[in-house]
Amino acid sequence: MFKALLYAAVLTGLSSQLSANEASNYSFDGPYVIQDKSAVESSPQQTAYWICNSKLTSSQVSEHSLKRPENCGNLPEPILTDDVKQVMPDSYTEVKKVVALSDVHGQFDVLLTLLKNQDIINADNNWAFGDGHMVMTGDMFDRGDQINEVLWFMYQLDRQAKAAGGMVHLLMGNHEQMVLGGDLRYVHERYDLASKLLDRSNDALYGEDTEIGQWLRSKNTLVKVNDVLYMHGGISSEWLERQLTIAEANRLFRANIGRPKAELKKDELLSFLFYGNGPTWYRGYFSDAFSEAELDKILAYFDVKHITVGHTSQKQVLGLFDNKLIAIDSSIKLGEQGELLLIENNKLIRGLFNGEREAL
């Protein structure tokens, strides 16, 4: 009862700051696709839950398609497929073109505008990048108020890219790690209503029994495409001292994502990977103490020419150390604009929000 009153108070307060249309959108959410408890593994049944005008409704998933209920706003109607939940390789060569971006944080409209202006998607929000690869280096979750719109859109692109001979690499960021592990301090208040009506905490809305949760848990944390290594935060020199491989780290992340922080901290290797100097949290590249000599050792260890990271906010896509290090968190999370990195014919390009392109 208290949470319902609190949510109503939040809506009342927001209505003075938002337009009537924007405020009403807080009463619509979903879909949350959850596997039925009674389903057997050989014949799983799923139910899609929708919040329409602050009321919970549900529909059975039929032949992998979801039909949005009537009078339920403009919520996503995804086509489901097991193909996007398969664990994919974490190293690729001879990829002709790559687009990379990061830290969307629920800013769905900015994401769509940027991708349309750069011809990555078409006017209908569908994949238009052919056999190219897209790398999203984490942090779709938290802060913003269109998280599910971003998630289902990326799910759609994942399916469409594979069908076109391309690939979407959705890497684990620290905020995916936080939400799936139950650290909900940055979750937007829009999602309080879903937790209340479905009687699930926000992390459980993306649990192992959900379509989005299973999809996210199949993904890598690091990927190597041609001569570039991508991850959310960065690779510290401690990684080299531990002589870790990309494959081992990805396996450990998938096996342990969602475990409580206290448990992960008890294991020395997992504590390193998930926190501190690990690849989802590290910010050392942007310290005055970090040197090009240290970076060169890391590049040599992985046999790459560039490392590309998000996590640490910039005003634009930024190349450091003669573009050996590329920072792609262009502050999309502020909800105003953003940039992306394009790599075509071995050329590094800034894709600007207005559709223009400049050499990095």
Rank of each mutant, 00 (worst) to 15 (best):
T221Y: 00
T245V: 02
Q214W: 01
N226D: 08
E336Y: 03
L341V: 07
L111H: 08
Q160C: 11
N71F: 09
L342V: 01
L270A: 07
L340H: 09
N122R: 03
F108Y: 15
E344K: 13
P279T: 09
L5F: 14
V99I: 08
H133K: 06
D158Q: 08
Y26F: 15
D158M: 05
F253T: 04
I349Q: 14
P69M: 10
N323G: 11
D192T: 13
L151V: 02
R217K: 15
D203Q: 07
R159M: 12
K55S: 14
D267C: 00
I349K: 12
D119W: 04
L299E: 11
S291M: 02
G165T: 08
Y282A: 01
A359Q: 12
V228E: 10
G13R: 11
F28W: 06
T113I: 07
T47L: 00
S27V: 03
S38A: 11
H169P: 05
E77A: 15
G258E: 05
L264C: 06
K162H: 11
H64M: 09
G213Y: 03
L6E: 15
E336K: 13
N323C: 13
Y49I: 03
Y301Q: 09
F141R: 10
Q156W: 07
A249K: 05
T280C: 08
N74A: 11
Y186K: 08
G207A: 12
S16K: 05
E41W: 01
Q160E: 15
Q177N: 14
Q314H: 11
L348I: 15
I332C: 10
G213Q: 08
Q86A: 10
E241G: 11
S218W: 00
A100K: 02
H311A: 06
E149A: 10
E94K: 12
Q17K: 14
A39I: 00
H64L: 09
F153K: 15
F28R: 08
M134I: 15
Y191D: 05
Q314M: 11
G276F: 05
L320Y: 04
I51G: 06
K324H: 15
M167G: 13
D203C: 03
Y282V: 02
L14Q: 13
N346T: 11
F129S: 03
D142L: 01
D209C: 04
